[in-house]
Computed example of a mutant assay.
Amino acid sequence: MKGVLLVNLGSPDSPTAKDVKPYLDEFLMDPRVIDVPKWLRNIIVRGIILQTRPKKSAEAYQKIWWEEGSPLIVISERFSEKVSKHVEIPVALGMRYGSMTIKNAIQSLIDKGVDEVLLVPLYPQYAMSSFETVVVKAMEVQQQYFPNIQITTLPAFYKNEAYIKVLSESIAEGLKGFEYDHILFSYHGIPERHIRKSDPTKFHCKIDQSCCTTNSVAHHTCYRHQCFDTTRRVIEYLGIDADKFSISFQSRLPNDPWLKPFTDFEFVRLAKEGKKRLAVITPAFVADCLETLEEIAMEGKHQFEEAGGEAYKHIACLNDSDAWVKVMADWIKSWHATEALPA
């Protein structure tokens, strides 16, 4: 019997330093997130970051926490429940980090008679610190606890026509009534070395002006290319002029080269260049979370207005919209009936 496992990032159990600390420890000790030798990762994470970050992160979570719980968890649960009503096979939800484990989610599917699982990392673009770590963790859990089940992974869907359509139409809906000067596509940042590590050719990804637009097998696992390609397809669908948009990357750790330009720098640059009315979309996420609700919707607005901007619009992620639910349900139905996966 077939079943589906949806997996997103995860969240602490509460917006307190006590619960944020173990969550950050699990997240940042992942070798695909901070990819340095374990002894050095221990020093960076447990010796430095976890001494101060949990309190600061807890304060950020408190700003966006809902009565029902973590927005990412609540939205993901709503999405999972809606999808399950549109398909004939069991659907489970797990998180890469935190208490909603992948192991428990797979067990819930097995309890319903499932022995063949479609793993759906809820990330449009491929990155070793998001998509890849979900797949690796799921396979580790499968080998250790559930050797008799089969797992098939839905590929990164950054250029899938149905996804681009639903994303573009969601952006258009979010822009209604807002006359913008500029649209900023802000993607989650990653270290530049992650791009090179994910390059199967070991020579194509130079992170320059041309490698992401020069056709290569490396693009199958190149986060930077996939961010650019998602943006290109959306602006073509919506007919946005080339001088009306730009791309940036948010979130980073210090003392390490990360993808540029940085989103917070772009807020200032755009305002100082006379862009008074800014819309921001975050297409690396399918569900609103700390990074979109606090870093972009709240802090981004403040940074843009402090630099001279006058109007700021954060456009929500796809979340549990009916159109996005239908796209996911259609992919699942296709796999259930024919084993076909979206291109």
Results as ranks from 00 to 15, higher is better:
residue 158 Y to K: 01
residue 63 K to R: 15
residue 178 F to L: 09
residue 129 S to A: 15
residue 44 I to Y: 06
residue 160 N to Y: 07
residue 112 K to M: 11
residue 60 A to E: 13
residue 171 I to A: 01
residue 169 E to V: 06
residue 49 I to W: 06
residue 99 S to C: 01
residue 175 L to T: 02
residue 90 P to I: 02
residue 131 F to W: 15
residue 128 M to A: 15
residue 119 L to W: 04
residue 146 F to D: 07
residue 165 K to I: 07
residue 145 Y to K: 14
residue 168 S to K: 12
residue 91 V to T: 02
residue 166 V to T: 14
residue 128 M to P: 13
residue 57 S to P: 05
residue 97 Y to M: 09
residue 174 G to T: 02
residue 135 V to Q: 14
residue 92 A to C: 03
residue 165 K to A: 13
residue 84 S to L: 04
residue 105 A to F: 07
residue 173 E to R: 09
residue 112 K to W: 10
residue 167 L to P: 03
residue 140 E to P: 02
residue 77 E to G: 07
residue 90 P to D: 04
residue 78 R to H: 06
residue 145 Y to E: 11
residue 184 L to K: 03
residue 60 A to Q: 13
residue 105 A to R: 04
residue 164 I to G: 00
residue 97 Y to D: 03
residue 87 V to A: 01
residue 126 Y to A: 00
residue 138 A to K: 04
residue 50 L to I: 07
residue 68 E to M: 03
residue 74 V to C: 04
residue 119 L to P: 03
residue 117 V to N: 00
residue 60 A to N: 10
residue 52 T to V: 08
residue 51 Q to P: 03
residue 72 L to V: 11
residue 148 N to G: 15
residue 167 L to W: 11
residue 124 P to C: 06
residue 107 Q to I: 00
residue 141 V to C: 04
residue 104 N to H: 14
residue 77 E to I: 08
residue 130 S to K: 11
residue 157 F to G: 02
residue 65 W to C: 07
residue 50 L to G: 04
residue 87 V to Q: 00
residue 158 Y to N: 03
residue 168 S to I: 10
residue 72 L to P: 03
residue 169 E to A: 05
residue 45 V to L: 05
residue 46 R to T: 10
residue 147 P to I: 05
residue 147 P to R: 11
residue 117 V to C: 04
residue 161 E to A: 15
residue 184 L to S: 04
residue 79 F to P: 01
residue 140 E to R: 12
residue 116 E to N: 15
residue 141 V to Y: 02
residue 66 W to D: 13
residue 138 A to N: 08
residue 141 V to H: 01
residue 122 L to D: 03
residue 129 S to M: 10
residue 161 E to V: 10
residue 117 V to F: 05
